[in-house]
Design a protein around this nucleic acid. Sequence first.
DNA 1: CAACGAAGGACCC
DNA 2: TACCAGGGTCCTTCGGCT
Length: 441
Amino acid sequence: MDNNNNNKNINNNESNNNKDNLCDIDDKNKIDDENVLYRLSLNPNKGGLQNVDKEKINKIIYEVSKGSAFFKNAKEKEKAHFEKIKEIKKKYLFLKNQPMEYEKQQMKNIMNKMESDRDLSQYIVHVDMDAFYASVEELDNPELKNKPMAVGSKSMLSTANYEARKYGVRSAMPGYIALKLCKNLIIVPTRFERYHELSHQIRNIIANYDPDYCPASIDEVYLNITNFLNDNPNYTPSKVTEELREEIYKQTRLTASAGIAPNICSDMNKPNGQTELKNCTDEILKFLKDLPIGKVSGIGKVAEKTLNELGIKTCGELKENMVYIKELFKPSSYQFLLSASLGLGRTKIENKWKRKSISVERTFSNTSEIQKLEDKLHEISCKLANDVKKENLKGKSVTLKLKTSSFEILTRCLTISKYIYQQEDLYKVGKKVKFIYIIFF
DNA sequence: CAACGAAGGACCC
DNA sequence: TACCAGGGTCCTTCGGCT
Protein backbone atom coordinates (compact mmCIF):
# COMPACT_ATOMS: atom_id res chain seq x y z
CA MET A 1 0.00 0.00 0.00
CA ASP A 2 1.08 3.54 -0.42
CA ASN A 3 2.77 4.90 2.57
CA ASN A 4 2.03 8.45 3.38
CA ASN A 5 4.82 9.40 5.63
CA ASN A 6 6.46 11.76 3.23
CA ASN A 7 4.99 14.88 4.65
CA LYS A 8 6.60 18.19 4.12
CA ASN A 9 6.17 21.17 6.32
CA ILE A 10 2.82 22.69 5.74
CA ASN A 11 3.88 26.30 5.87
CA ASN A 12 6.50 26.07 3.20
CA ASN A 13 5.93 29.67 2.26
CA GLU A 14 7.36 30.91 5.47
CA SER A 15 11.04 30.96 6.16
CA ASN A 16 11.79 27.46 7.17
CA ASN A 17 15.49 27.59 7.25
CA ASN A 18 16.32 25.30 10.08
CA LYS A 19 19.72 26.80 10.58
CA ASP A 20 17.88 29.99 11.48
CA ASN A 21 15.34 28.19 13.59
CA LEU A 22 18.10 26.76 15.70
CA CYS A 23 18.76 30.20 17.05
CA ASP A 24 15.28 31.17 18.05
CA ILE A 25 14.11 28.05 19.79
CA ASP A 26 13.09 30.02 22.84
CA ASP A 27 11.08 32.56 20.92
CA LYS A 28 9.12 29.83 19.36
CA ASN A 29 7.13 28.71 22.34
CA LYS A 30 3.81 28.84 20.63
CA ILE A 31 2.53 25.77 18.95
CA ASP A 32 0.70 26.87 15.92
CA ASP A 33 -2.04 24.86 14.39
CA GLU A 34 -0.06 24.41 11.25
CA ASN A 35 2.42 22.31 13.14
CA VAL A 36 -0.44 20.21 14.38
CA LEU A 37 -1.73 19.71 10.88
CA TYR A 38 1.71 18.56 9.90
CA ARG A 39 1.58 16.07 12.73
CA LEU A 40 -1.77 14.74 11.61
CA SER A 41 -0.18 13.84 8.31
CA LEU A 42 -3.17 15.29 6.60
CA ASN A 43 -1.17 17.27 4.12
CA PRO A 44 -1.07 15.79 0.67
CA ASN A 45 2.42 15.34 -0.66
CA LYS A 46 2.18 12.03 -2.34
CA GLY A 47 4.10 11.28 -5.44
CA GLY A 48 2.24 11.98 -8.63
CA LEU A 49 0.15 14.63 -7.00
CA GLN A 50 1.91 17.75 -8.17
CA ASN A 51 -1.29 19.17 -9.55
CA VAL A 52 -3.25 19.36 -6.35
CA ASP A 53 -3.83 22.73 -4.82
CA LYS A 54 -2.17 22.08 -1.49
CA GLU A 55 -3.00 25.47 -0.11
CA LYS A 56 -6.70 25.02 -0.70
CA ILE A 57 -6.76 21.44 0.49
CA ASN A 58 -4.98 22.25 3.72
CA LYS A 59 -7.37 25.07 4.39
CA ILE A 60 -10.37 22.80 4.01
CA ILE A 61 -8.83 20.11 6.18
CA TYR A 62 -7.99 22.65 8.81
CA GLU A 63 -11.47 24.13 8.82
CA VAL A 64 -13.02 20.71 9.29
CA SER A 65 -10.54 19.53 11.91
CA LYS A 66 -9.91 22.50 14.15
CA GLY A 67 -11.79 22.53 17.38
CA SER A 68 -12.38 18.78 17.33
CA ALA A 69 -11.30 16.64 20.26
CA PHE A 70 -9.02 14.79 17.91
CA PHE A 71 -7.30 17.98 16.90
CA LYS A 72 -6.93 19.05 20.51
CA ASN A 73 -5.32 15.76 21.36
CA ALA A 74 -2.92 16.11 18.47
CA LYS A 75 -2.06 19.56 19.73
CA GLU A 76 -1.17 18.18 23.14
CA LYS A 77 1.05 15.55 21.57
CA GLU A 78 2.66 18.19 19.47
CA LYS A 79 3.35 20.30 22.52
CA ALA A 80 5.06 17.42 24.28
CA HIS A 81 7.11 16.63 21.23
CA PHE A 82 8.07 20.26 20.91
CA GLU A 83 9.53 20.20 24.42
CA LYS A 84 11.54 17.14 23.56
CA ILE A 85 12.85 18.76 20.43
CA LYS A 86 13.88 21.80 22.42
CA GLU A 87 16.02 19.64 24.69
CA ILE A 88 17.63 17.87 21.79
CA LYS A 89 18.36 21.15 20.05
CA LYS A 90 20.01 22.50 23.15
CA LYS A 91 22.31 19.51 23.34
CA TYR A 92 22.92 19.72 19.61
CA LEU A 93 24.00 23.34 19.78
CA PHE A 94 26.35 22.50 22.60
CA LEU A 95 27.91 19.62 20.69
CA LYS A 96 28.26 21.74 17.58
CA ASN A 97 30.56 24.03 19.52
CA GLN A 98 32.77 21.17 20.61
CA PRO A 99 35.69 20.07 18.47
CA MET A 100 34.61 16.40 18.67
CA GLU A 101 37.80 15.45 16.82
CA TYR A 102 38.04 12.04 18.43
CA GLU A 103 34.36 11.27 17.91
CA LYS A 104 34.53 12.33 14.29
CA GLN A 105 37.43 10.04 13.64
CA GLN A 106 35.66 7.26 15.45
CA MET A 107 32.55 7.75 13.34
CA LYS A 108 34.64 7.69 10.19
CA ASN A 109 36.09 4.37 11.27
CA ILE A 110 32.68 2.94 12.04
CA MET A 111 31.36 4.01 8.65
CA ASN A 112 34.39 2.67 6.84
CA LYS A 113 33.98 -0.64 8.53
CA MET A 114 30.30 -0.80 7.65
CA GLU A 115 31.07 0.26 4.12
CA SER A 116 33.62 -2.50 3.70
CA ASP A 117 31.06 -4.99 4.98
CA ARG A 118 28.46 -3.86 2.48
CA ASP A 119 27.03 -6.84 0.67
CA LEU A 120 26.50 -6.07 -3.00
CA SER A 121 26.05 -9.64 -4.08
CA GLN A 122 22.28 -9.85 -3.65
CA TYR A 123 19.51 -8.58 -5.86
CA ILE A 124 16.48 -7.77 -3.74
CA VAL A 125 13.19 -6.68 -5.24
CA HIS A 126 10.44 -4.93 -3.38
CA VAL A 127 7.05 -5.32 -5.05
CA ASP A 128 4.26 -3.02 -4.01
CA MET A 129 0.77 -3.02 -5.48
CA ASP A 130 -0.60 0.33 -6.68
CA ALA A 131 -3.50 1.64 -4.59
CA PHE A 132 -4.26 -1.97 -3.88
CA TYR A 133 -7.70 -1.93 -2.28
CA ALA A 134 -8.96 0.75 -4.65
CA SER A 135 -7.59 -1.09 -7.66
CA VAL A 136 -9.29 -4.28 -6.59
CA GLU A 137 -12.58 -2.45 -6.25
CA GLU A 138 -12.17 -0.99 -9.74
CA LEU A 139 -11.34 -4.42 -11.04
CA ASP A 140 -14.57 -5.87 -9.69
CA ASN A 141 -16.62 -2.83 -10.58
CA PRO A 142 -15.20 -1.09 -13.65
CA GLU A 143 -17.77 1.67 -13.35
CA LEU A 144 -15.67 3.04 -10.53
CA LYS A 145 -12.80 3.67 -12.89
CA ASN A 146 -12.23 7.30 -13.75
CA LYS A 147 -14.44 8.34 -10.88
CA PRO A 148 -13.03 9.62 -7.61
CA MET A 149 -13.30 6.67 -5.27
CA ALA A 150 -11.89 5.57 -1.96
CA VAL A 151 -12.10 2.41 0.10
CA GLY A 152 -13.17 2.67 3.72
CA SER A 153 -15.91 4.46 5.57
CA LYS A 154 -17.08 7.91 6.57
CA SER A 155 -14.76 7.73 9.52
CA MET A 156 -11.63 6.40 7.86
CA LEU A 157 -10.30 5.65 4.39
CA SER A 158 -7.82 2.92 3.63
CA THR A 159 -6.85 4.01 0.19
CA ALA A 160 -8.01 6.24 -2.65
CA ASN A 161 -7.79 5.81 -6.38
CA TYR A 162 -5.73 8.24 -8.42
CA GLU A 163 -8.76 10.19 -9.54
CA ALA A 164 -9.64 10.90 -5.90
CA ARG A 165 -6.06 11.82 -5.09
CA LYS A 166 -6.32 14.71 -7.47
CA TYR A 167 -8.64 16.27 -4.91
CA GLY A 168 -6.26 15.63 -2.06
CA VAL A 169 -8.06 12.53 -0.88
CA ARG A 170 -5.68 9.93 0.44
CA SER A 171 -5.32 6.95 2.70
CA ALA A 172 -5.58 7.43 6.45
CA MET A 173 -7.91 10.35 5.90
CA PRO A 174 -11.34 10.37 7.52
CA GLY A 175 -14.02 9.85 4.91
CA TYR A 176 -16.09 12.83 5.98
CA ILE A 177 -13.12 15.11 5.47
CA ALA A 178 -12.48 13.53 2.09
CA LEU A 179 -16.06 14.30 1.14
CA LYS A 180 -15.43 17.95 1.88
CA LEU A 181 -12.52 17.86 -0.52
CA CYS A 182 -14.45 15.99 -3.16
CA LYS A 183 -18.22 16.07 -3.03
CA ASN A 184 -18.57 13.33 -5.63
CA LEU A 185 -16.25 10.93 -3.89
CA ILE A 186 -17.58 7.40 -3.88
CA ILE A 187 -16.70 5.53 -0.71
CA VAL A 188 -16.90 1.76 -0.95
CA PRO A 189 -16.60 -0.50 2.08
CA THR A 190 -13.54 -2.73 2.50
CA ARG A 191 -13.74 -6.36 1.46
CA PHE A 192 -10.74 -7.93 3.11
CA GLU A 193 -11.51 -11.47 2.01
CA ARG A 194 -11.31 -10.35 -1.61
CA TYR A 195 -8.03 -8.49 -1.09
CA HIS A 196 -6.55 -11.52 0.62
CA GLU A 197 -7.67 -13.70 -2.24
CA LEU A 198 -5.81 -11.54 -4.76
CA SER A 199 -2.87 -11.12 -2.44
CA HIS A 200 -2.57 -14.88 -2.38
CA GLN A 201 -2.71 -15.07 -6.14
CA ILE A 202 0.02 -12.45 -6.46
CA ARG A 203 2.25 -14.24 -3.98
CA ASN A 204 1.93 -17.42 -5.97
CA ILE A 205 3.27 -15.61 -9.00
CA ILE A 206 6.13 -14.18 -6.99
CA ALA A 207 6.99 -17.61 -5.65
CA ASN A 208 8.05 -18.55 -9.19
CA TYR A 209 10.92 -16.11 -8.89
CA ASP A 210 11.77 -16.74 -5.26
CA PRO A 211 10.04 -19.48 -3.30
CA ASP A 212 11.40 -17.94 -0.10
CA TYR A 213 9.84 -14.55 -0.71
CA CYS A 214 8.90 -12.48 2.31
CA PRO A 215 5.48 -10.83 2.53
CA ALA A 216 5.75 -7.41 4.15
CA SER A 217 2.05 -6.66 4.16
CA ILE A 218 -1.06 -7.68 2.30
CA ASP A 219 0.13 -5.94 -0.87
CA GLU A 220 3.88 -5.89 -0.48
CA VAL A 221 6.54 -8.51 -0.92
CA TYR A 222 10.30 -8.69 -0.76
CA LEU A 223 12.05 -11.28 -2.85
CA ASN A 224 15.61 -12.22 -3.57
CA ILE A 225 16.09 -12.85 -7.26
CA THR A 226 19.80 -13.67 -7.06
CA ASN A 227 19.24 -17.39 -7.48
CA PHE A 228 16.82 -16.84 -10.31
CA LEU A 229 19.41 -14.70 -12.08
CA ASN A 230 22.04 -17.39 -11.67
CA ASP A 231 19.72 -20.01 -13.09
CA ASN A 232 18.67 -17.74 -15.95
CA PRO A 233 21.79 -15.96 -17.20
CA ASN A 234 19.94 -14.26 -20.03
CA TYR A 235 17.96 -12.18 -17.56
CA THR A 236 18.91 -8.88 -15.97
CA PRO A 237 17.44 -7.76 -12.64
CA SER A 238 15.23 -5.20 -14.31
CA LYS A 239 14.08 -7.71 -16.91
CA VAL A 240 13.07 -10.16 -14.20
CA THR A 241 11.19 -7.43 -12.40
CA GLU A 242 9.47 -6.28 -15.56
CA GLU A 243 8.40 -9.80 -16.34
CA LEU A 244 7.18 -10.33 -12.83
CA ARG A 245 5.05 -7.19 -12.90
CA GLU A 246 3.80 -8.11 -16.34
CA GLU A 247 2.83 -11.54 -15.08
CA ILE A 248 0.97 -10.04 -12.13
CA TYR A 249 -0.91 -7.79 -14.52
CA LYS A 250 -1.73 -10.60 -16.90
CA GLN A 251 -3.13 -12.81 -14.20
CA THR A 252 -4.86 -10.24 -12.04
CA ARG A 253 -5.23 -7.08 -14.14
CA LEU A 254 -3.64 -5.18 -11.28
CA THR A 255 -0.53 -3.06 -11.57
CA ALA A 256 2.45 -3.20 -9.28
CA SER A 257 5.49 -1.06 -8.70
CA ALA A 258 8.89 -2.34 -7.76
CA GLY A 259 12.24 -1.29 -6.44
CA ILE A 260 15.42 -3.22 -7.16
CA ALA A 261 18.42 -2.80 -4.89
CA PRO A 262 21.21 -4.75 -3.22
CA ASN A 263 19.29 -4.69 0.05
CA ILE A 264 15.78 -4.25 1.30
CA CYS A 265 16.08 -0.55 1.90
CA SER A 266 14.63 0.52 -1.40
CA ASP A 267 11.16 1.96 -1.47
CA MET A 268 11.33 4.44 -4.26
CA ASN A 269 8.76 3.66 -6.85
CA LYS A 270 5.97 5.23 -8.77
CA PRO A 271 2.61 3.88 -9.84
CA ASN A 272 3.09 1.07 -12.30
CA GLY A 273 6.81 1.56 -12.59
CA GLN A 274 10.08 0.27 -11.31
CA THR A 275 13.30 1.79 -10.07
CA GLU A 276 16.62 0.08 -10.10
CA LEU A 277 19.48 0.90 -7.84
CA LYS A 278 22.62 -0.75 -9.18
CA ASN A 279 24.68 -2.91 -6.87
CA CYS A 280 27.36 -0.32 -6.57
CA THR A 281 28.26 1.85 -3.62
CA ASP A 282 28.54 5.09 -5.57
CA GLU A 283 25.08 4.67 -7.05
CA ILE A 284 23.60 4.01 -3.64
CA LEU A 285 25.25 6.99 -2.01
CA LYS A 286 24.27 9.23 -4.89
CA PHE A 287 20.69 8.09 -4.55
CA LEU A 288 20.70 8.69 -0.82
CA LYS A 289 22.34 12.07 -0.95
CA ASP A 290 19.15 13.98 -1.67
CA LEU A 291 16.64 11.43 -0.48
CA PRO A 292 14.35 13.06 2.10
CA ILE A 293 14.70 11.21 5.39
CA GLY A 294 10.93 10.85 5.65
CA LYS A 295 11.07 8.47 2.69
CA VAL A 296 12.92 5.92 4.74
CA SER A 297 10.65 3.25 6.10
CA GLY A 298 10.91 3.50 9.86
CA ILE A 299 11.22 7.26 9.94
CA GLY A 300 7.75 8.55 10.61
CA LYS A 301 6.49 12.06 11.03
CA VAL A 302 7.82 12.42 14.58
CA ALA A 303 11.37 11.38 13.81
CA GLU A 304 11.24 13.29 10.56
CA LYS A 305 10.31 16.47 12.31
CA THR A 306 12.89 16.00 15.04
CA LEU A 307 15.60 15.60 12.45
CA ASN A 308 14.28 18.43 10.33
CA GLU A 309 14.50 20.71 13.32
CA LEU A 310 18.18 19.86 13.55
CA GLY A 311 18.52 20.95 9.98
CA ILE A 312 18.68 17.41 8.68
CA LYS A 313 16.38 16.87 5.71
CA THR A 314 18.12 14.31 3.55
CA CYS A 315 19.92 11.05 4.10
CA GLY A 316 23.06 12.78 2.89
CA GLU A 317 22.75 15.36 5.64
CA LEU A 318 21.96 12.61 8.07
CA LYS A 319 25.21 10.92 7.20
CA GLU A 320 27.16 14.12 7.70
CA ASN A 321 25.63 14.58 11.14
CA MET A 322 25.91 11.06 12.47
CA VAL A 323 28.54 12.11 15.04
CA TYR A 324 25.90 14.22 16.73
CA ILE A 325 23.08 11.75 16.20
CA LYS A 326 25.11 9.21 18.11
CA GLU A 327 25.10 11.48 21.14
CA LEU A 328 21.54 12.73 20.78
CA PHE A 329 19.60 9.56 20.15
CA LYS A 330 19.13 6.25 21.93
CA PRO A 331 21.47 3.45 20.84
CA SER A 332 18.92 1.56 18.83
CA SER A 333 17.68 4.69 17.06
CA TYR A 334 21.25 5.64 16.35
CA GLN A 335 22.01 2.22 14.92
CA PHE A 336 18.96 2.41 12.72
CA LEU A 337 19.71 5.91 11.48
CA LEU A 338 23.32 4.99 10.83
CA SER A 339 22.30 2.10 8.60
CA ALA A 340 19.75 4.29 6.87
CA SER A 341 22.27 7.03 6.22
CA LEU A 342 24.54 4.55 4.46
CA GLY A 343 21.72 2.82 2.63
CA LEU A 344 22.38 -0.45 4.34
CA GLY A 345 19.43 -2.74 4.72
CA ARG A 346 19.27 -6.42 5.35
CA THR A 347 20.45 -8.57 2.49
CA LYS A 348 18.85 -11.67 3.94
CA ILE A 349 15.12 -11.95 3.82
CA GLU A 350 13.26 -14.40 5.96
CA ASN A 351 9.67 -15.42 5.80
CA LYS A 352 9.49 -17.12 9.14
CA TRP A 353 6.92 -14.84 10.61
CA LYS A 354 5.60 -15.77 14.02
CA ARG A 355 2.58 -14.03 15.46
CA LYS A 356 3.22 -12.32 18.76
CA SER A 357 -0.21 -10.98 19.51
CA ILE A 358 -3.75 -11.01 18.27
CA SER A 359 -6.28 -8.29 18.88
CA VAL A 360 -9.71 -6.85 18.21
CA GLU A 361 -10.57 -3.21 18.68
CA ARG A 362 -13.71 -1.21 18.05
CA THR A 363 -14.39 2.47 18.21
CA PHE A 364 -17.85 3.52 19.35
CA SER A 365 -19.60 6.73 20.25
CA ASN A 366 -18.82 8.35 23.57
CA THR A 367 -20.33 6.79 26.64
CA SER A 368 -19.60 6.51 30.33
CA GLU A 369 -22.18 3.85 31.03
CA ILE A 370 -20.59 0.79 32.56
CA GLN A 371 -23.17 -1.48 30.98
CA LYS A 372 -22.39 -0.23 27.50
CA LEU A 373 -18.69 -0.66 28.08
CA GLU A 374 -19.25 -4.19 29.30
CA ASP A 375 -21.35 -4.92 26.25
CA LYS A 376 -18.50 -3.74 24.08
CA LEU A 377 -16.07 -5.88 26.02
CA HIS A 378 -18.36 -8.81 25.42
CA GLU A 379 -18.57 -8.04 21.73
CA ILE A 380 -14.83 -7.84 21.21
CA SER A 381 -14.17 -10.89 23.37
CA CYS A 382 -16.49 -12.88 21.09
CA LYS A 383 -14.73 -11.72 17.97
CA LEU A 384 -11.34 -12.33 19.56
CA ALA A 385 -12.25 -15.82 20.73
CA ASN A 386 -13.40 -16.53 17.21
CA ASP A 387 -10.14 -15.31 15.66
CA VAL A 388 -8.08 -17.13 18.27
CA LYS A 389 -9.93 -20.34 17.54
CA LYS A 390 -9.45 -19.96 13.80
CA GLU A 391 -5.70 -19.74 14.28
CA ASN A 392 -5.60 -22.33 17.01
CA LEU A 393 -3.91 -20.01 19.48
CA LYS A 394 -3.91 -19.41 23.18
CA GLY A 395 -2.42 -16.77 25.39
CA LYS A 396 -1.83 -15.78 28.97
CA SER A 397 -1.60 -12.02 28.77
CA VAL A 398 -4.68 -9.92 28.14
CA THR A 399 -4.41 -6.22 27.35
CA LEU A 400 -7.39 -3.96 27.36
CA LYS A 401 -7.09 -0.80 25.37
CA LEU A 402 -9.30 2.16 26.06
CA LYS A 403 -9.62 5.27 23.98
CA THR A 404 -11.23 8.16 25.78
CA SER A 405 -13.44 10.83 24.29
CA SER A 406 -10.39 13.07 24.20
CA PHE A 407 -8.51 10.47 22.15
CA GLU A 408 -6.18 9.48 24.92
CA ILE A 409 -5.14 5.86 24.66
CA LEU A 410 -4.93 3.86 27.87
CA THR A 411 -3.87 0.25 28.07
CA ARG A 412 -4.06 -2.12 30.99
CA CYS A 413 -2.59 -5.57 30.93
CA LEU A 414 -3.14 -8.64 33.05
CA THR A 415 -1.02 -11.74 32.86
CA ILE A 416 -2.46 -14.93 34.25
CA SER A 417 -0.91 -18.26 35.14
CA LYS A 418 -2.58 -20.42 32.51
CA TYR A 419 -3.16 -20.12 28.81
CA ILE A 420 -6.67 -19.24 27.75
CA TYR A 421 -8.54 -19.07 24.46
CA GLN A 422 -12.26 -19.34 25.21
CA GLN A 423 -14.56 -16.37 24.99
CA GLU A 424 -15.80 -16.76 28.56
CA ASP A 425 -12.25 -16.68 29.90
CA LEU A 426 -11.23 -13.77 27.71
CA TYR A 427 -14.25 -11.83 28.86
CA LYS A 428 -13.63 -12.69 32.50
CA VAL A 429 -10.01 -11.61 32.40
CA GLY A 430 -10.95 -8.59 30.35
CA LYS A 431 -13.43 -7.59 33.01
CA LYS A 432 -10.80 -7.93 35.67
CA VAL A 433 -8.48 -5.72 33.69
CA LYS A 434 -11.27 -3.29 33.13
CA PHE A 435 -11.74 -2.95 36.85
CA ILE A 436 -8.41 -1.26 37.03
CA TYR A 437 -9.48 1.60 34.88
CA ILE A 438 -12.88 1.94 36.49
CA ILE A 439 -11.12 2.49 39.79
CA PHE A 440 -8.82 4.80 37.92
CA PHE A 441 -11.57 7.26 37.17
C1' DC B 1 19.89 -5.18 42.33
C1' DA B 2 19.27 -6.32 37.74
C1' DA B 3 15.84 -8.44 35.20
C1' DC B 4 11.22 -7.90 33.99
C1' DG B 5 6.51 -6.80 33.31
C1' DA B 6 3.44 -3.05 32.37
C1' DA B 7 2.24 1.20 30.08
C1' DG B 8 3.06 4.36 26.54
C1' DG B 9 4.59 5.59 21.94
C1' DA B 10 6.29 5.48 17.15
C1' DC B 11 5.65 3.25 12.96
C1' DC B 12 3.71 0.53 9.06
C1' DC B 13 -0.11 -0.60 6.01
C1' DT C 1 -26.10 16.00 12.10
C1' DA C 2 -21.57 14.91 13.49
C1' DC C 3 -17.59 13.00 12.44
C1' DC C 4 -10.28 10.59 12.74
C1' DA C 5 -9.86 2.75 12.01
C1' DG C 6 -7.97 -1.53 13.12
C1' DG C 7 -4.35 -4.96 13.09
C1' DG C 8 0.35 -5.61 13.90
C1' DT C 9 5.72 -4.94 15.67
C1' DC C 10 9.31 -2.96 18.25
C1' DC C 11 11.45 0.24 21.58
C1' DT C 12 11.74 2.99 25.89
C1' DT C 13 10.71 4.18 30.48
C1' DC C 14 9.68 3.19 35.02
C1' DG C 15 8.88 1.00 39.39
C1' DG C 16 7.70 -2.61 42.83
C1' DC C 17 9.25 -7.23 43.63
C1' DT C 18 11.91 -11.27 43.96
